[in-house]
Structure formats: structure tokens, C-alpha cells
Design a protein around this nucleic acid. Structure first.
Length: 486
DNA sequence: TGAAATGTTGGGGCG
DNA sequence: ACGCCCCAACATTTC
């Protein structure tokens, strides 16, 4: 008796290498049917945003192309995951569904229901870990609870065994002639109707091949200087792997293995502060999933509950929020970051911290507004990392920057973009200003501004808030929160 | 993975 | 020669 087909349900693991669900499906022996289900309703209030959908479209296209080369296709459908899986089981004669786990609250609830429903019908339903070095359930502090501070968390993780990438799998993919008819990828409507994402295609190569090349390029040219260069946004020192990691075009075990193999001869690993630092950034991603799993309400609510009553500023017509979103705050380093985000779907990490601090402290607008904007505009939008990042910036999360730690956007610009190269890249109207005043054009003398073609209030805005007063107001708001009668 | 305010120290100008 | 003061440089504290 021959083995029935297996449905391999792709979600945020859009790769064929290091794919434990795929390896297990291949080991079953029957043919494997690759399936992707577009099910935004199943994501709670966090359906992929516009930039993520752009990436997803192209990543699915790449996965489909890889499967075509193997004589099959990616079977694409949209609708409720459980219903679609049921239909595909019937249409293909499959008796098993394998997938790699997700860890977002809505996905956990949905997947658990699907798994028990399938099992009740006698379907072999199994899930695997493809996307984390350390699953949240497997890491506990001495008291048996979740870690809430990164350094002890990561130290503990580094004492644990890291699994090797999954074995390569060459399954018998179900041939195109036997596949049910798939929906066209275009029918999912993932691409924007207006082509605001034009620059995305010049910036990114979604898909497993692109991810592999990005890792190789980073390891070859960047990782050794990563520890020092990573803070300077004009140096291009980032790995730029965040979106590939989010969509699972590459897995953290592959990254780990790549660096381990790099030091095979010496046996010393990690071998440099650059490698350690880069792995620690992978560790922050792990920590973000750890926190999201154990504190599932944090995408909406501060982990430190007292911050729910923070006295945010009034912005009745949304003018402040709009200026921030569009990169028109009058602070060049902030505006450059917001424009890089809008143009490319990505922002350098140092600059993410600066713009987040500015929104939450200088404008005193709720961090949730920033998280939502990032969610819609980042190609790497990831519920765990986004939530951690914003709660960190707002001072209301685990191991967060204290609220009183307020970035001075001028000093941050002068420290990390001394020549103004980053600012000039994203704010061309300031490109002719000398470095000495690029981060504070409002202090430049009229002649300098004129010869640079800058007219404050017209070609580039004046600061929408005064730094000193905004800082004082932020500290006063924190004080008000502390003194609030409880 | 801050910044600003405040405190301390020590060199040098100067009466 | 000496004490006083200024202030830059650095350290510490506070937000």
C-alpha cells in the first residue's frame, strides 16, 4: 500500500533548505504538495501591512519558481486556513498536513484549533520549529518563569545546544499534472494598486536565493566590522536580513551554522566581537519571541501596566503624527529615517531608535501609533520584534530604555552621521548644507542657508517642537504618571 | 543601545 | 612665591 500525499503548509518559512516540516514530509515517502494560504482574517488585528504584502508577493513568486524547477508548483489559495486545508485534503487525497510553527498569539490559537480539528478527523497533523534557535517554551529562568532582561536571557541561551539546520530534503513533489488548479498569485491582491513600492524592487531581492546571497555578502564583507560600524547608518553595515528572517527565507540555524562553519579550523566560535554582536542581534529576535509568547497582550498594551495611564499629548488633527510619518518634523536625522522607511520599506536600526524616541518623547504620542505605522510600512514588519522595539523605546517594556532616557536628535545625528551623508541621501533638499549645520539647519546663518538653496519653512520645515521644551514636557509627563493617585 | 546637570580636579593667568 | 579665580576636562549624579 503506497503512502498518501502530504500537504506542506507554508506560512513564514518560505524556503526549501533547513525546513524541518519539509524534511519530515519527505521522509513519509509519499508525494508532497506545497500550499500557501492567504488568510489575513486569521491574523487577528495584525494582518500583514502593505509593505509586507509586497515582500510576500515576491517571496511566494520565488518559492513558486523554485518548485517549478522541481516539476511542481506552489498551490496558492485564499480563505480561512482550516476550510482551505480541508478542501485541499479532499482534492489531493492527502492524509497529512505538516507545517512549521508560528508564535504570534493569533496564530498560536488558530493553529492549535486546526491541529486538533485535523487530528479528530484522523489526519496526521504535525508542526515543527523552523524559525527560532530557542523556542519560548524551552527557556526558563531559575524560578521557572520567563526571562525579562536580555543579557541573562542570552547568556542562558548560549549555554544551550543549538540544533543544526534540518537535513536537505528532495521529496517527490506532486507533479503539475496532478495538482489541483491553483489561484494565480496576482489574485491575492498583495501588490499595491499604486506603484509606491517602485523603489522596493531596486532595493530588495525577496526569496530564498536573495536571502542566501545577502547572508554570504554580509559574512564576506561586513561581519568582522559589524560591532563598530553597525551604529553608523551611512556605512551600510547592517546585514539587511530582517525581512528574510521574518518570512523564513532563511532560518536562524542557517545563520548560526554559517558562522560556525566559518571558524571550523580554529574551533573558536564566535571568533570576533563582530560575530558575537551579530549573533546577539539574532538573540534579540529570539528574545522578542520569548516575550511575545509569554506576554501575548504586549502588541497592544504596555508590559509595565502603570504606563497604560501615561499622559500622552493631544494631537487633535493628527498634525504631529502626520509630520512624523512623512518625515517633516524639521529634525533631519528623524526625517531622513522616516523617508528611508517610506522609500525602501526599511530603516537602519540606530535610526529606528531615534525616530521612535522622538515620537514617544518629543511628540509624546502613543508608541502604539508608531508600531502601527511601522507595521504598515516595514517590509520586515514582525509582531515580536516590532512590539519589543516600541516598548523598549517607550520605556514600558521588559528590559526597556528608561523613559527618562531621551535621545537628542541633534546629538545623535552629529554622533552617528557626522558628515551628514545619511541625511543627504534621504533629504536631498538639504544636500548642499555643510556638515557643521546639517543636523540643525535652524541654527545656520542666513547666508549659508541661501547658498545651499534651503528656505526654512518652505523647502524644509522648521522644527515642529523645541528640543529643550519637549524634553522638559516629557519628563513632566513621566512625573505626572508617577504621582498619579492609584 | 543618553543627555543634562552638577561636582571635582588641576593647569595657568594674574595680582 | 603665593593665593585666588577661571574654566576646561573629566567624573558623578540625576532625570
Amino acid at each position: 500500500m503506497s503512502t498518501a500525499p502530504t500537504l506542506l503548509w507554508f506560512r513564514q518559512d518560505l524556503r526549501l533548505e533547513d525546513n524541518p516540516a519539509l524534511s519530515a514530509a519527505a521522509a513519509r515517502g509519499g508525494v508532497v504538495v506545497a500550499v500557501y494560504i492567504w488568510d489575513p482574517e486569521g491574523e487577528g488585528s495584525w494582518a500583514p501591512g502593505a509593505a509586507s504584502r509586497w515582500w510576500l508577493h515576491h517571496s511566494l513568486t520565488a518559492l513558486d519558481a523554485a518548485l517549478r524547477r522541481a516539476g511542481s508548483r506552489l498551490l496558492v489559495r485564499s480563505g480561512a486556513s482550516e476550510r482551505v486545508l480541508g478542501e485541499l485534503l479532499a482534492a489531493t487525497g492527502a492524509d497529512a498536513v505538516y507545517w512549521n510553527r508560528r508564535y504570534e498569539p493569533a496564530a498560536i490559537a488558530r493553529d492549535a484549533a486546526i491541529k486538533s480539528g485535523l487530528k479528530a478527523r484522523g489526519v496526521d497533523a504535525r508542526s515543527f520549529n523552523a524559525s527560532l534557535l530557542f523556542e519560548p517554551t524551552g527557556v526558563k529562568n531559575r524560578q521557572g518563569g520567563p526571562f525579562q532582561v536580555f543579557t541573562p536571557y542570552w547568556r542562558h541561551c548560549l549555554s544551550l545546544e543549538v540544533e543544526r539546520p534540518a537535513a536537505a530534503a528532495r521529496p517527490d513533489w506532486m507533479p503539475v499534472s496532478r495538482l489541483p488548479v491553483a489561484d494565480a498569485l496576482e489574485s491575492l491582491g498583495l501588490l499595491p494598486t499604486l506603484d509606491w513600492a517602485a523603489a522596493f524592487g531596486r532595493t530588495w531581492v525577496p526569496g530564498e536565493d536573495g536571502a542566501r546571497k545577502a547572508l554570504e555578502a554580509f559574512v564576506a564583507a561586513r561581519v568582522d566590522t559589524y560591532a563598530t560600524d553597525r551604529d553608523f547608518p551611512s556605512l551600510g553595515a547592517s546585514s539587511r536580513l530582517s525581512a528574510a528572517l521574518h518570512f523564513g527565507e532563511i532560518g536562524p540555524r542557517q545563520i548560526w551554522e554559517r558562522l560556525r562553519a566559518r571558524n571550523e579550523e580554529t574551533g573558536v566560535f564566535p571568533a570576533s566581537v563582530g560575530e558575537s554582536r551579530f549573533l546577539a542581534e539574532v538573540g534579540w529576535r529570539e528574545f522578542a519571541y520569548h516575550l511575545l509568547f509569554h506576554f501575548p497582550r504586549t502588541p497592544e498594551a504596555p508590559l509595565r501596566g502603570e504606563y497604560a495611564a501615561f499622559p500622552w499629548a493631544d494631537d487633535p488633527e493628527g498634525k504631529l503624527l502626520r509630520a512624523w510619518r512623512r518625515g517633516r518634523t524639521g529634525y533631519p536625522i528623524v526625517d531622513a529615517g522616516m523617508r528611508e522607511l517610506w522609500t525602501t520599506g526599511w530603516m537602519h536600526n540606530r535610526v529606528r531608535m531615534i525616530v521612535a524616541s522622538f515620537l514617544v518623547k518629543h511628540l509624546r504620542l502613543p508608541w502604539q501609533e508608531g508600531a502601527r505605522w511601522f507595521w504598515d510600512t516595514l517590509v520586515d514588519a514582525d509582531l515580536a520584534s516590532n512590539t519589543l522595539g516600541w516598548q523598549w523605546s517607550a520605556g514600558c517594556g521588559a528590559d526597556a530604555a528608561p523613559y527618562f532616557r531621551i535621545f537628542n536628535p541633534v546629538l545623535q545625528g552629529e554622533k552617528f552621521d557626522a558628515e551628514g551623508r545619511y541625511v543627504k541621501t534621504w533629504i536631498p533638499e538639504l544636500a548642499r548644507l555643510p556638515a557643521s549645520c546639517i543636523h540643525r539647519p535652524w541654527e545656520a546663518d542666513p547666508g549659508t542657508l541661501a547658498s545651499a538653496g534651503v528656505e526654512l519653512g518652505r523647502t524644509y520645515p522648521r522644527p515642529i517642537v523645541d528640543h529643550v521644551r519637549a524634553r522638559q514636557a516629557a519628563l513632566a509627563a513621566l512625573q505626572a504618571l508617577k504621582e498619579r493617585p492609584s
